[in-house]
Design a binder for these strands. Structure first.
Length: 558
RNA sequence: UGAGCUAUGGUGUAAUGGCAACACUACAGAUUCUGGUUCUGUCAUUCUAGGUUCGAGUCCUGGUAGCUCAACCA
């Protein structure tokens, strides 16, 4: 029997879950969602949120989620994008019930347009693009009616057929819904349903030279698929009345649209158009450049699907505008990687240390734990010799008060190996430190020391003669401003690009990292999480920094 | 300026008329062969002015602020 203390407090519902539960309470027996990307670019973290919502809701309520490509504008779309989108959704861990394209419905959509013409609810307009724009009015001034608005049904039918048959040039005519040129909602001022585009479509080829607009195609596509909950972002809320208008006018299955606030992240650009520009202008290596917010970039950078899903869960779903701290995304990867990533040692900014009382011909191996949180991960052997690299940050000639790493006369623990003491600092003519001479305590190899003394500092190291040199790519935010669109007078968002977003250096890795392959992920102890890049080869290894470790020492010294 | 949407800590999300909760961040401390992890603690009179009510973050009215809409894009 459940008693009060064993009761688990139920997690509260988000507003979409509430809507669904209400509809179920009212007798709805089905939950059918859809994820409807336009194949005109790569999916980004904002789409990941939408994917998690749509597939997550379907899963939670025993329903299904379709994948539907919204491919109504052939001039911007391409199969390259279709393939990447499918791959990214699968990588995130979701699978769709059915795969469809808005273009699958072009015939049906055309027939329905004819229905609307016959009902006197649509007409062919011969005005130019300019004239149509002027006729629409403004937010505070009513529009004016097109001189072609009152054509007969027969003439409209004839003209629309001829539009379809390719008799007219691009832009010569459009099909418009006949609604209300004075409507306060601009979208109701006789919205365009079809435009002429003599462009080859990536799926329908040259079959069509007229293509439906989003507002006409989307709700009808939802209706055809009997979508119960059509979920989209907030900027589409003004489209909802029109979405409903077409469905009611056509008397077809009533899908309903619900809107949530899109994801924004500090220091991150989410606009597909602008991301495309970065790719085209080669400001980044490509859509999967690890500095991009795209899903393929996150994958390449070393993010796990679970961490992206956890992030989507963490940011929640609501209708108010938001800007999420980039730190939250980093928290999510660290949390996942801390659990699963094997530890290794690597020195990114080397300082040579000679251990003067250690046999110069000797190499011995120390056992190092692969993952302190996972005993099953086991351990590995790490070679040690007389000359090693340590991080330059781990030595300070004149240490500040709370510094407990290496300094002249001071002793530190080499992780998994000996205690060493700095005896001499060697400098070049410029005064730059070139190497350190240290002595070691031969009895300290097992974690103890010769006389029971304990040291606070533990630093990582790599044996110079065994080290594996590798290119290390350090990534920083792509933009210098929290909001990349926050621009000074006379500047553009591109002026906010961070010149230090990519720093490439040579690091020295422990030899066990040889042969690491794409998909593996490691923690370089005390430094961060790293993974082999897709550019990596056995001869020239390349590692990406996924995210740094939390560093409270660095923060203290800011 | 017409219409629509939204206002709760630094950030995000809860609280469904009854003690403002959870997570991230920040700060303080404990543990630690990673200045990591883990653990403990600290951080709000809910945009504003009125009203309804025994009782309002929640309901009502006015104001203010932010976002969205005037592509033959989605």
């Amino acid at each position: 029997m459940a008693n009060e203390t064993s009761e688990i407090k139920e997690k509260s519902l988000n507003f979409l879950e509430e809507i669904i539960e209400e509809s179920i309470a009212k007798g709805e027996t089905r939950v059918q969602t859809r994820f409807p990307p336009e194949p005109n670019g790569y999916l980004h973290i904002g789409h990941a949120k939408s994917i998690c919502i749509n597939f997550g809701l379907a899963k939670k309520y025993g329903g299904k989620c379709n994948l539907r490509f919204d491919d109504t504008n052939p001039v911007k779309e391409d199969v390259e994008y279709v393939d990447s989108i499918k791959r990214d959704i699968k990588w995130l861990g979701f699978d769709w019930a059915i795969e469809r394209y808005a273009s699958d419905y072009f015939d049906q959509l055309y027939d329905w347009a004819v229905v609307l013409i016959n009902k006197g609810l649509a007409y062919v307009d011969d005005q130019t693009q300019e004239q149509i724009r002027e006729g629409r009015g403004t937010v505070s001034v009513a529009g004016t009616m097109s001189p072609f608005r009152n054509r007969s049904i027969e003439e409209n039918l004839d003209l629309f057929t001829r539009m379809k048959n390719g008799e007219f040039a691009d832009g010569a005519r459009v099909l418009r819904a006949k609604i209300d040129m004075a409507h306060p909602n601009m979208l109701f001022r006789d919205p365009i349903m079809y435009r002429i585009l003599h462009t080859e479509h990536h799926r329908t080829g040259n079959k069509w030279c007229i293509y439906p607009m989003y507002d006409y195609a989307h709700g009808e596509s939802d209706s055809i698929e009997k979508i119960t909950h059509s979920i989209c972002t907030l900027e589409f809320d003004v489209h909802r009345p029109l979405y409903d208008w077409f469905i009611e006018a056509l008397e077809i299955f009533p899908s309903h649209q619900y809107e949530f606030a899109r994801l924004n992240i500090t220091y991150t650009m989410m606009s597909k158009r602008k991301l495309l520009k970065l790719v085209q202008e080669k400001a980044v290596m490509g859509w999967d450049d690890p500095r991009m917010p795209t899903i393929c970039a996150l994958r390449r950078k070393g993010y796990t699907p679970a961490s992206v899903r956890a992030f989507a869960e963490m940011v929640g779903v609501a209708k108010r505008d938001n800007i999420i701290d980039l730190g939250k995304l980093e928290y999510c990867v660290r949390e996942d990687l801390n659990r699963i990533a094997e530890r290794r040692m690597a020195v990114l900014n080397p300082l040579k240390v000679v251990i003067t009382n250690y046999d110069e011909h000797k190499t011995e191996c120390f056992s190092a734990i692969n993952n302190p949180g996972d005993e099953a991960a086991g351990s590995r052997q790490v070679p040690f010799s007389q000359v090693i690299y340590i991080e330059r940050d781990d030595f300070m000639e004149e240490p500040s008060k709370k510094y407990f790493r290496l300094s002249p006369g001071n002793e530190v623990r080499l992780r998994y190996a000996y205690l060493i003491k700095c005896e001499e600092v060697v400098k070049d003519a410029d005064g730059t430190i070139t190497e350190l001479h240290c002595t070691y305590d031969p009895l300290s190899g097992n974690g103890s020391s010769s006389d029971g003394r304990r040291v606070k500092g533990v630093i990582h190291w790599v044996s110079v003669k065994d080290a594996l040199p590798a290119e290390i790519r350090l990534f920083n935010p792509l933009f210098t401003k929290e909001n990349p669109d926050d621009v000074e007078e006379g500047q553009t968002w591109e002026d906010n690009l961070n010149p230090e977003s990519l720093i490439s250096i040579t690091g020295y890795l422990e030899p066990s990292l040889k042969g690491a392959t794409v998909g593996q992920t490691f923690q370089f102890e005390r430094v961060g999480y790293f993974c082999p890049d897709t550019d990596s080869t056995p001869e020239q290894p390349v590692f990406n920094r996924t995210v740094t470790l939390k560093d409270s020492w660095a923060k203290m010294n800011k």
